[in-house]
């Protein structure tokens, strides 16, 4: 089967971002970028399915400007067969991304779309279910295990209360959670090889869909600061601070 893995370039998860003092957005100076960690997990799962002989081709795709090429090169170095960049004139929101990916999926006809449950910059967690709905496909969100069985895929989902395993008819869309797998590292040799691969370029306008952002971010502020705390020197002192929070605190007082 062919697997499509949409990937997003995000601010590296180790960086604590700051907003500009005028509230107009992120202070982008000195930021590092990487592939969204959940997308690395999605790609890793696709690689494992290919290694198991279940997947025949892995296509990664990203919507964005020329900067996302680095992310796609990283994906090629990890082992994706092909990379597509959908060139967009503006920064997109999930609805626009989902529309472009739908159009791409209709061209590429994958049997499975594997993608992150959430981008760690926007924290939107929307694109997966949106894309599934637009394609009219079943969805398995927050996957912590996945197995392909004939014309179906079984997805174990991390949900409130525990775990749930769904069986979905193919084609289907699965979003990844943290415990699906541990992604491999890229080797230097593969990074060098990936440099020579071509990234297919498709202008967003060529898909004939309305991908323009709909939401307006009016302000971006820093969260309120907490006042400096107090270090205690004994368990009794700690107990004293915690007692007011006991359910039966009044009764005890």
């Amino acid at each position: 089967m062919k697997i499509l893995v949409p990937v997003k370039r995000v601010v590296d998860h180790e960086i604590r971002v700051r907003v500009k003092p005028d509230g107009s957005g992120l202070d982008e100076s000195g930021l590092r970028y990487a592939m969204n960690p959940f997308d690395e997990i999605a790609l890793e799962e696709a690689l494992r399915l290919r290694e198991a002989g279940i997947c025949s081709e892995i296509v990664i795709a990203s919507c964005g400007d020329a900067a996302v090429q680095d992310t796609l090169r990283h994906g090629l170095a990890l082992g994706a067969d092909r990379a597509i960049r959908i060139d967009t004139p503006v920064t997109l929101q999930p609805l626009g991304v989902a529309k472009l990916l739908k159009a791409l999926a209709l061209q590429e006809a994958p049997q499975l779309i594997l993608m992150g449950k959430q981008a760690t910059d926007s924290d939107a967690a929307q694109t997966g279910p949106m894309l599934a709905a637009m394609l009219g496909w079943p969805q398995g969100c927050f996957a912590s295990a996945l197995s392909v069985k004939a014309d179906r895929v079984e997805v174990r989902r991390e949900i409130d209360g525990g775990l749930e395993t769904l069986s979905l008819s193919l084609p289907a869309l699965v979003t990844t959670d943290l415990r699906l797998n541990l992604p491999r590292f890229v080797t230097l040799a593969n990074t060098m090889k990936a440099r020579r691969k071509t990234i297919e370029l498709m202008p967003a306008e060529s898909f004939g869909v309305d991908f323009m952002p709909r939401l307006r971010v009016l302000r971006s502020e820093a969260p309120p600061e907490r006042l400096p705390g107090e270090m205690l020197d004994s368990v009794s002192a700690l107990a004293g601070r915690l007692k007011p929070f006991l359910a039966d605190a009044e009764a005890q007082a």
């Binding site: 924290d123 967690a125 929307q126």
Partner: peptide, 27 residues
């Protein structure tokens, strides 16, 4: 997604970037 405050019928607050940014969004 992840609204923490409704400011007006078309205006919402939500955290992004691991809570390091509080966005005011008009929809």
């Amino acid at each position: 997604s992840g609204v923490t405050r409704i400011l007006a019928p078309d205006c919402f607050q939500r955290p992004s970037h691991a809570g390091n940014v509080i966005e005011t969004v008009q929809c």
